[in-house]
């Protein structure tokens, strides 16, 4: 499977499936919302910086939710913050994707037991596409999570009804 199903060499025409084209466009420019919560945000910053270079996957930070495609929940979500995150998520245009980065965002992490003010998993508030485990996950793990998300997008269908 690929975008180049059939190519006419002379005439600059490509024949491909609509789904493939749309998915290819979507997965290659996932604009990310600049949004850091806690420790994981530093690893997210390190991923965007020179050494790991998030940009090569088309992930460009955008400061506004209205221009973003993915939101990376990078860190501990507290009860005070949870409703704000929900609102940010609702402000993002469709299609939108969520990566839950780190143990805290996934299930409360080390704060699961005594954290009276910690939300035990962001999936109690918004739907999540990819969970990245780790405390904090290494930048490589976040990249892997992004690749998984791209794989998921690649298999989406716009014409067929989704199961």
């Amino acid at each position: 499977m690929g975008i180049l199903d059939k190519e006419f060499t002379e005439s600059n025409i490509i024949i491909t499936k609509f789904d493939d084209l749309m998915n290819w466009a979507r997965l290659s420019s996932l604009w990310q919302m600049t949004f850091g919560l806690a420790c994981c945000a530093i690893e997210m910053m390190a991923t965007s910086a020179s050494h790991y270079d998030f940009d090569r996957f088309g992930v460009i930070p955008r400061p506004s939710p209205r221009q973003a495609d993915i939101i990376i929940i990078s860190g501990t979500v507290t009860l005070k913050m949870a409703l704000r995150i929900k609102r940010l998520y609702e402000q993002m245009p469709e299609p939108k994707y969520v990566i839950s980065m780190g143990s805290c965002a996934t299930c409360g992490g080390p704060y699961w037991n005594h954290g009276y003010h910690v939300l035990k998993g962001i999936d109690r508030v918004i739907p999540v596409d990819v969970y990245v485990p780790g405390c904090p996950p290494r930048p490589e793990a976040l990249l892997e999570g992004l690749l998984k998300l791209q794989e998921k997008i690649r298999n989406e269908s716009h014409v067929k009804k989704q199961v």
Partner: peptide, 11 residues
């Protein structure tokens, strides 16, 4: 402040 209050002292 308090949007990242993770209850360190309780822990």
């Amino acid at each position: 402040i308090g949007y990242l209050h993770r209850c360190f002292e309780k822990h």
